[in-house]
Computed example of a mutant assay.
Amino acid sequence: MRQNRQQGNSHLHWHVAPLPPDVPYREQQFHALMGENGVLPWTLPQAIELADRLRAALSTLD
C-alpha cells in the first residue's frame, strides 16, 4: 500500500487575491472567487516580485 507523503504533516497556505476598491468586507471572499468579476493579468516577473515582498514581510514576524 502506498502512503501519502503529506499524511499527518501540518501545514498552512494562504490565497492572496487582490480585490477592486470599495468591495464591502462581507462580499470580499465571494467576490474574489467569482470569475465573472474578471481576472487580474499577472506576468511571471510580477508574481515573483510579489512573492519576494511577501516573503520579506513574513520574515519580520515572530
Rank of each mutant, 00 (worst) to 15 (best):
W42S: 06
H31I: 03
A17M: 11
P24Y: 04
L19E: 07
V39M: 10
V23R: 01
Y25N: 08
H11I: 04
W14S: 07
I48C: 02
W42I: 14
W42L: 11
L50H: 03
L44E: 14
H13P: 06
V23M: 02
P21I: 15
R53V: 14
N37W: 02
E49L: 03
L12P: 00
E27N: 09
A57S: 10
R53L: 13
L54I: 15
D52I: 05
V39N: 10
P18S: 02
P45T: 15
L54M: 12
M34P: 00
L40Y: 09
V39I: 14
Q29Y: 13
L33I: 14
A57N: 04
L44F: 12
E36G: 05
E49D: 15
V23I: 12
R55N: 13
P45Y: 02
P41Y: 13
F30G: 08
G35T: 14
P24W: 00
I48V: 12
P45Q: 04
R55D: 14
H13W: 10
E36W: 05
I48E: 12
A17G: 03
V23W: 04
Y25L: 13
A32Q: 11
N37F: 09
Y25S: 09
Y25W: 13
D52Y: 09
L40T: 15
L44P: 07
L33P: 03
R55Y: 12
L50R: 04
A32N: 06
R55M: 11
Q28S: 09
A57M: 06
R53K: 11
T43A: 03
P45G: 06
A32W: 13
D52C: 06
A57E: 13
A17T: 14
T43K: 01
A57T: 14
E27S: 05
Q29F: 15
R55W: 13
D22S: 06
F30S: 10
P21D: 14
L19C: 03
D52N: 11
G38A: 04
F30R: 04
P20M: 03
A51D: 12
H15R: 00
E27G: 01
P24H: 01
H15V: 13
I48Y: 00
G38Q: 05
P21C: 04
W14M: 15
E36C: 03
T43N: 02
H15N: 07
P24A: 02
V16M: 00
H11C: 05
E36A: 08
V23G: 01
A57G: 06
A32H: 10
H15I: 15
R53C: 11
N37A: 01
V16S: 00
E49S: 09
A17H: 12
V39A: 09
G38H: 02
H31R: 01
P18A: 06
H15T: 12
A17C: 07
A47R: 04
A51M: 06
Q46D: 10
H11M: 01
